[in-house]
Nucleic acid binder design. Sequence first.
DNA 1: TGTACATCAGTGAACGCGCGTTCACTGATGTAC
DNA 2: TGTACATCAGTGAACGCGCGTTCACTGATGTAC
Lengths: 230, 230
Amino acid sequence: MEATATGVRAQAKQAMLEAILTAARRQLAEVGPAALSVRAVARDVGMASSAIYRHVASRDELLTLLITDAYEDLGAAIETAESEAERGDYAGRFRAAALGARCWALAEPHRYALVYGSPVPGYIAPEATIGPATRGTAVFARILVDATAAGTVTHVSRSQIGHAVLVPQVMHEFLPGVSIELAALGVLCWAEIFGLISFELFGHLVGSVADNEAFFDAGVSEMVDRLGFG
Amino acid sequence: MEATATGVRAQAKQAMLEAILTAARRQLAEVGPAALSVRAVARDVGMASSAIYRHVASRDELLTLLITDAYEDLGAAIETAESEAERGDYAGRFRAAALGARCWALAEPHRYALVYGSPVPGYIAPEATIGPATRGTAVFARILVDATAAGTVTHVSRSQIGHAVLVPQVMHEFLPGVSIELAALGVLCWAEIFGLISFELFGHLVGSVADNEAFFDAGVSEMVDRLGFG
DNA sequence: TGTACATCAGTGAACGCGCGTTCACTGATGTAC
DNA sequence: TGTACATCAGTGAACGCGCGTTCACTGATGTAC
């Protein structure tokens, strides 16, 4: 009974935290991260503002929770999308992962902006955000690793890339066996994917690109070519 | 004498506006666009907060001025950098323009984030920002146009790009004579350049990329290849 | 099972603060004769 | 050149508002005997 008893309290607490985060996500979408306010969240959730402090230490911790939450959610979306492609189809896996990222971003523009837009002034991301941040990226890395292991990489860009460009530890941990050239190309593509998504979401394609989805697809096709998954 | 007289007043007014913008840029760097405050700007400039309203209609107009100002400044930096390359060296011009953008962004990270980071919540950009926004982009467009006119474009990516992807008016106005394929490739590169800059500035390369400049250079080299400026 | 005690989620008032914008005003600077 | 008047940049008080965080408190829920 003891375990169940404390379990009930803990469960209620967990549910309350979830409600607070839901309200905070709503707030985020309305006023943005810089104007996110503990009091507004409390109002939304129907509590005294001071009650929030029973669940969250400060406004900054609330922001941290939103950030890790967004990274995890985006990472999960990329994982799910990628997992639906055939394992041996590296182009398909890459395409699915990229599209998964874009779909999530379109559905959750404010949470996307929170993690891939401007840093929040005055907020310093604690170490706890690093883990979740790599989740989505790791999916892309795995595709490169698998393709290399399978010997499917047929051609990489002709541009020269110095050996010191990437951090060795990342090469060992996330890209074992992958050549520096392909790894650097992968990081470039990773940045391009999020560059394309940001441009679309932040309005820089308005007036230039008529069909955002076709444009993104064209970009991804090009990346697949470059990576040698053609 | 009349013209000089009003000229003196007008000149003082102009100087005051410049002082306000300088203070506003400082504020922007400290607290970000969402927290930019008329009162803090007034304090910085040494005036009563109400005095600001003699020069600027509202907080939103102040933001608009900062945005057009940032676009113009970035555009000018790209123009200057690009103009130093030899006219017939399209790869060199492209490279210079891209590096010019990156240099400006590194020197003015907050103003860069203002225009290429997350949109400011609750702020709706007026039409007046459109013109300045195209200034830098136009430099890249001109390189494509010139290279096409000179017949220097030797090879474009093998990926297929539908004809409806780009807005026809933009093709006519900024990219006359340029093929749809090259134009789309150009827009992709444009997005990639700003994607790379944003990733670097917003901290997404920390821990992965050891040498940001070399990495950016590698990316640009690759783009030059793709565009057929090799 | 029943009772005494401890835990702890939520309250509401209070702290000191900053915000955008308006408004009647002052006083220096420019203009017209 | 001298004077009367108009312009207008800057003032400071005021409006109504929201903020993060603390603190002593209440009262329900869980725990230990």
